[in-house]
Nucleic acid binder design. Structure first.
Lengths: 339, 339
DNA sequence: TTGAGAAATGCAAGCGCTTGCATTTTTTCC
DNA sequence: GGAAAAAATGCAAGCGCTTGCATTTCTCAA
């Protein structure tokens, strides 16, 4: 709790022998203040150790210079990295980041969004598109600009700064199929309430359709993003008939879990089984064999999302969606079947 | 920017046919309001879609229910994990997290601290102890409680919630020495302006002294936390005479970089060279061989730090420091020399 | 030197909420 | 049933800052 009596604008005004209005202007639009006055005010600020009261400022100016973000979890490196870049960018622009996490729970996420808005966030970063219509209405009604990151959906009306999950993994799946795999397993993230995970499954299915792979040659298991779960899922997939020769994973974490488990089962990767990842986080090049995966420019995404939000807040214009381009990184966990 | 005319307390008061004071109380201390009245107010709030104005509230109540944290970077998994737990805890207590990062730069960090305070943070989480006396003075003067995490120093006057880096790595070093290693290399983090990194070097030195290892048998190279740098550092260390048989790393990231490089150089780990880590982040059990490292309870630390801060804010009492206990995790990257 | 226009400054009205104190209503207990 | 205590409510004074508008001061051309 702030100490009893911190200096106020008025104290500074008295010290500098000007009005509070002038002090305020010296702080917020120094260009409109005479050089000499400005100097006096600054000296007074310095002397008194003055720092504006946040609440008062927010109340009077109707803006907080605070930008909110609700992400599923900071523990996943992809969000941590993107958020870091996001934070750096808004910080450089004089704003501050207000963070909340949803643990991938839709209800909790909506609560957090309302919370951030109530806390005065004047723009918000959200992950993906899946959430109730009401919450979008709410944001619209309050005039809070928002950007959806980590996905990009061509036909949506929202402003995205992200990449097309569906298309990205589709390309990877094509590459798998081109190598001759005809029975495929997929370890996906939980698709309910998660458009990114869903789009990734969709992308793989589309590729399979293109190559006329029959349904019985494709099996999907959904699981939360966790090494151990991925290992279990791998075992389940290996029991399917016909047995898959390639496992496409919803992200690198699942892929790492699968690779570990495959090795534990005495299988060679990729000779006995190919495994692919998604995201290209650090572990993907540390595990043996390193993962063939899809690289996502997380930092870049965070930075651009921040710039977008900053611009939207300023101009009150809905910004256009921005699509980033992921690309496949070939490392070694994918090869021809039965090689 | 908030829409032109959101409902205010007064609107709710009118709708519910009570005074604004009663509405305010209904929101903040419902126990002091008659059940019937409360009901009427809540109905009005619902009907109008009212949500209190943050600035006004902060101004009038002199507290924001916002807690700040300045961490070096979210990209390092250890901070991400701790911060996630920290956030969850304060969120559960009705507060929100304001985040800034310092990129390990002292000046930037102090700027960020002032920034968070100006933004109304009513308590702050800081990493480690290294910073100017002025900034501590500043915090004290403003009456902002703070907690230092990720380290614990027995003789400091600050409130820590962390672990004793020096003691923890000292134990690990002892274990290395017990195995018979007599020439040691260390890849440390940059120790300037970073008490954790410094304490870790210190801990190793102390262990060496205990075992009477002469100075020329110990070489330290400092580098920023980065895989590639660690690899370079390893090469440099291997050129030293006498050549080290064990490399103690300042954290897991450095250790992973060292292991990768060692393998690239055709060395077997641990047969040809032992390498140890610190932190026990996920990669340490994914790399081959998995790292022998020191486990730090990051999540627990984040949670406790949050609870501490919450309590300090409430009671206006300086909390006692809390010391967490790291422990060594033996995995496979450390063995007897020349085995 | 003077006067018009531009630049700088001051005045004062809020911004929407909390809270101490005063007042009214309800409850309790003889 | 009534007085005293307790509970609920209302009144209104701020909290510290921004900003539109009015006023003063400065600048510069004639």
């Amino acid at each position: 709790m702030p100490n009893h009596s911190l200096p106020t604008l008025e104290d500074v005004a008295r010290e500098a022998q000007v009005s509070t209005a002038t002090v305020s202007r010296s702080l917020n639009s120094p260009d409109n203040v005479a050089a000499k006055t400005l100097e006096r005010v600054q000296a007074a600020v310095q002397k008194l150790g003055y720092s504006p009261n946040f609440g008062a400022r927010a109340l009077a100016a109707k803006r907080t210079n605070t930008i909110g973000a609700v992400i599923p979890t900071m523990e996943n490196a992809i969000f941590a990295r993107g958020l870091q870049a996001f934070q750096e960018t808004i910080s450089r622009n004089g704003s501050t980041l207000l963070v909340a996490s949803s643990s991938y729970l839709r209800e909790l996420e909506e609560e957090q969004i309302r919370n951030l808005v109530a806390r005065g966030a004047d723009a918000i970063l959200l992950i993906g598109e899946d959430r109730s219509e009401e919450i979008y209405e709410f944001l619209k009604k309050r005039g809070i600009p928002y950007v959806l990151a980590w996905n990009y959906r061509p036909n949506s009306s929202h402003c995205f700064v992200g990449f097309d999950n569906r298309a990205a993994i589709k390309n990877l799946a094509r590459k798998v199929l081109d190598l001759g795999h005809v029975t495929i397993g997929m370890i996906a993230g939980l698709t309910q309430e998660n458009d990114r995970a869903r789009d990734r499954v969709l992308g793989v299915r589309e590729a399979l359709a293109e190559y006329n792979i029959p349904g019985e040659n494709f099996h999907v298991i959904e699981t939360s993003y966790d090494f151990t779960n991925a290992g279990d899922a791998l075992e389940l997939l290996l029991e399917k008939k016909p047995k898959p020769t390639a496992i496409i994973c919803g992200n690198d974490i699942l892929a790492v879990g699968a690779v570990k488990q495959a090795k534990a089962l005495g299988l060679r990767v990729p000779e006995d089984i190919s495994i692919t990842g998604f995201d290209d986080i650090e572990v993907s090049s540390i595990i043996e064999p390193p993962l063939t995966t899809v690289h996502i420019p997380h930092r870049k995404m965070g930075k651009i999302a921040a710039e977008c939000l900053l611009a939207m807040r300023k101009n009150q214009v809905l910004s256009k969606s921005i699509k980033l381009n992921p690309f496949i990184v070939e490392r070694g966990s994918l090869s021809k079947p039965g090689e």
